[in-house]
Design a protein around this nucleic acid. Sequence first.
RNA 1: GCCACCGUAGCUCAGCUGGUAGAGCAGCUGAUUUGUAAUCAGCGGGUCGGGGGUUCGAAUCCCUUCGGUGGCUCCA
Length: 635
Amino acid sequence: MIKIRIDDKIEETDKANAKHKLIQQGAIAIKVNGKVIDLNEIDSIDDNETIEPVSINTSEGLEIYRHSTSHVMAHAVKILFPDAKVAIGPATDDGFYYDFDIERAFTPEDLEKIEEKMREIISENNAFVKKVIKREDAIKLFQQKGEDYKVELLQEIQDDEVTVYEEGDFVDLCRGPHLPSTGYIKAFKLLSVAGAYWKGDERNKMLQRIYGTAFGNEKELKKYLQFLEEVKKRDHRRLGKELDLYSINEEIGPGLILWHPNGAIIRKCIEDFWRDEHLRAGYKLLYTPHIAKLYLWQKSGHWDFYRENMYSPMEIEGISYELKPMNCPFHIAIYKSSLHSYREFPIRYAELGTVYRYERSGVLHGLLRVRGFTQDDAHIFCREDQIEEEILHVLDFTLFILKTFGFDNYEIYLSTRPEKFVGTEEDWERATNALKQALQHKGLDFELDPGEGVFYGPKIDIKVKDSLGRPWQCSTIQVDFNNPERFDVTYRGQDGKDHRPIMIHRALMGSLERFFGILIEHYAGAFPLWLSPQQIAVITVADRHVEYAEKIMDTLRREDIRVEPFFENEKVGYKVRQATIRKIPYSVIIGDKEIDSGLLTVRRRTGQQSGPYRIEELIERLKREINSRSLELTL
RNA sequence: GCCACCGUAGCUCAGCUGGUAGAGCAGCUGAUUUGUAAUCAGCGGGUCGGGGGUUCGAAUCCCUUCGGUGGCUCCA
């Protein structure tokens, strides 16, 4: 007799019945003592153990399900392309992949054929059979099959025994666990082919990776595919073109952003907001140059640590200058231009500083990964004992800024001391604790990211979740022990002596370009009123209404409301459509009715109408919505 | 940087196995003067990303280069 736990109820039964019951509960694997194993292994379980079902509705279950699907895919590939060598094929967060070494390139048509073959294998309902064999035997087995990558993996395994899984006539080295049989797979799709280095090392051979995904049923798969469609629709590169927000020009250079008028006005709104709030939060604004002597970066250590991301120096009158990859040395120079007392602390310097970093061509991506970008940067100088309080201040400020754009879901990471570091272990300990305490004080959940800190200090990273639930790394708050030392930054303490301050680097939006890209996708191009390039479309019914419409436009414009005329000789429906496509929040139509009554009816870009309003009332409502930076349309 | 794929009018795309380019939208002109997501007609627009080659002949095949896309690697 063994025990099974279903919905927290424990039941004692014999093994055959237990298995039956577990399957009834949707089990595709089982959990014993916290360890997930094959459902088929139930027979080898000791009596008295308690077994729990693992269903596909759990992350563990889904992982097994997808992992098994990747095996079926490898099996199908081996049938269709016997020359292909299999490498590795795990489940991922949203699907699975398998890497193959094969001469020919997989085409989209190949994927269809592979899918077809996979369906066959699934309909055969082959059992996944686990076998424990001696390592040497496994090596022989895979050598015979010509599976060099498996042999290489085996040679790195220390254990005497390894497990292989057999499914039909496909054998794979695998830790498992797996589904009981291939017939359990109900819904899957192969999505794309991509190159991937063997073991992720760029010195190794480039293999071909097939990505796919699998779900418990067709409905969920369809939902996921629709999600991918939605992601495509919101792609900032597509919307950036459609809404004429920005462009990247081949002649100007990859990774360099041209902000068009529509994008520039959005950026202006963001920058104005950013500056006003920084002044309000006790920051002082700075401007600094785009280039500086190379020596500066040799001193800061960037030339040693990050030269790969810096552009080649340029000669000016025999001296090497360098395009700036960071703003900190400039802010330090400003700090050092006069003596500072502990009484001034914390000193907060902020700048929208444009930096240039070399990114390898393959990684550039729209606005999200570029070569020239503007950081919303700040450097805070304070005493070590002020770190926690200052971090609290920065956290509050960060969350306020992010929330204004509609980001109120976060993932927070605390990164600790890496292997290569400067400063003493005690410094790190104290600073890390200060960060941790600040987070706890705010009641913010965070994850530890051990060893992921920057060489000069620990940091807090904040990822925002957009309207589709996708995480984006934006904010970073970093403690720096390095630069104050390297640049001999000091302050005069209470004791009349010079001391070393701590520097805190922080960026809230990260880079304006990247943040803009995220915003485009977050709002799907439909910006809230305060950010919209055009806030209200004025549409005339016929030419005779233009004069009055112009008056309305002037009135609105004088109130700093961004108006766009639609006066062409077209039908109202056409012009309404144009305004809607451009995602202009509101439209008003000017015809005889409006002129006679002196009232205006407002149409939202979503189609609802409100009003009619007197012009003064309309202006007041618009301004209220703009000034409150409302995320919703309120008219 | 690496692997695969892609690059045709301002935009989205068609153009099979080589026979010197086509649609829709946008633009311009005209008619129409219109009431909440597309009025009709006409016109202009491309050395088919650049360079080289094969061929009687290249958007189409080959090489090379630039750029883009999906990944890998990287991301202070």
